[in-house]
Design a protein around this nucleic acid. Structure first.
Lengths: 170, 170
DNA sequence: GATGAAAGCGGTGAGCG
DNA sequence: CGCTCACCGCTTTCATC
C-alpha cells in the first residue's frame, strides 16, 4: 500500500485522472477513460499505481458538517505546557471534535481545527483542550471556501518579485 | 440537489451509512447494505436522500498533498484593508494554492489555508496575499492528523463544568 | 496503450410482508 | 419502510495485437 519514495513523478495524464477523481470519486474506469481519452485497462493500471504509491490515499463521501448537525467551526492555536502536550497525552479518539492537528512554527506549537454542534459544545471542548496549555480560539463565522482539489504544481507556479533595495552586491 | 432546510434529522442507520461511505466512498449499495445489515434497494434509497438533502455533498478521491508535490502547508490570518478585501477583489481561481477560506470573529477577519510546492512558492503566494491587508503566517512543520470523519453529535456530547465561583444567585 | 470478448457484479423495479 | 427476486446493463479483466 505504500511506496518507499515520498514523491512520485506525475505526468499530464496522471493529473487529468486526479482532477476527475477529485471531482467524482465514484467514476468507473470506463467513464474515467472516456473523459481523459484513454482505454479502461490503461486507466485502471494508472489509478492502481497512484493508489499504491499513495498519491491517492482513499475515496470518501464528503459530508457537509453543517447539514450533519455541526454548525460550529473553530480554529484553536495551542501552546502546550511541558509534560501535558496534546499530542503526547491524548489520542484522536479522545477528541472526536478535533478535525485537524498541525504542528506549527512560530509562537504557538499547534493549530487545531474543531467541529462542534453548538457553542455550548465548543465551550466544553475548549475547556478540555485548555488543560494542555495556553490557547487562542478563533470562531468561524462562515466558511467561504473549502475542499479545494490539488492540481499540478507546474500550472500555478508564481514568480516572486525580488525586493529592489535588498539585492546582493554586484 | 438541494433541500429547503439546512438540517435534516439523521437516524442511527443514516449515521452508519455515513460512517462507511466516509471510510470508503466507492462502496457499492450491495456491499454497503451487507455491512450495515440492510438490503441494497433500502440502502440506495437512503443514500439518495442523504445526497438530495445535501448531507452527502459529493464523492472524492483523497489526494495526499505531500506525495502530489505540495510539501508545504501554511495558515494565514488576514486582516483585510477596506476596499481590498480578498473575498471581494479575488476569485478562487486566482489563488489555486488557497485550500480554505474562513471568515473569523476576533482580530483577524480571515483564516486561510495554503498548500504550496516549496517555500519559494509559498513566499510568492504570501506576497500576493499581502496586498489585501495585514497578515500573520504560520508555516506547518508537520501534520499530525487531518480528514477526520464526522460522526453522530449525540455520541460525543461533552458536559461543560460550570465555573464554581460564578453561578447565578440562588 | 488499444481492442474485443466473456464473466461477474451491481443497479433498478415490481410485488409482498 | 424494508425485503426478495429477477432482469438488464455495465464494468472489469484477460488475452491479443
Amino acid at each position: 500500500m505504500n511506496s518507499s519514495r515520498s514523491e512520485y513523478a506525475l505526468d499530464d495524464v496522471d493529473w487529468r485522472i486526479l482532477d476527475e477523481l477529485q471531482k467524482d470519486g465514484r467514476l468507473s474506469f470506463n467513464e474515467l477513460g472516456r473523459r481523459i481519452h484513454l482505454s479502461s485497462p490503461a486507466v485502471a493500471e494508472r489509478v492502481r499505481r497512484l493508489e499504491q504509491v499513495g498519491v491517492i490515499s482513499g475515496y470518501r463521501a464528503v459530508v457537509d458538517p453543517v447539514r450533519a448537525g455541526y454548525g460550529i467551526t473553530a480554529f484553536v492555536q495551542l501552546r502546550c505546557k511541558l509534560g501535558s502536550c496534546l499530542l503526547r497525552t491524548s489520542r484522536a479518539a479522545d477528541y472526536p471534535e478535533v478535525t485537524e492537528v498541525h504542528k506549527l512554527s512560530g509562537a504557538h506549537c499547534t493549530m487545531i481545527q474543531i467541529r462542534a454542534a453548538s457553542l455550548a459544545h465548543l465551550e466544553g471542548v475548549i475547556e478540555q483542550l485548555g488543560r494542555h496549555g495556553e490557547l487562542h480560539t478563533h470562531v468561524v463565522l462562515s466558511t467561504q471556501y473549502q475542499d479545494a482539489t490539488v492540481s499540478r504544481p507546474e500550472t500555478i507556479e508564481r514568480p516572486v518579485t525580488p525586493s529592489a533595495g535588498w539585492s546582493g552586491p554586484e
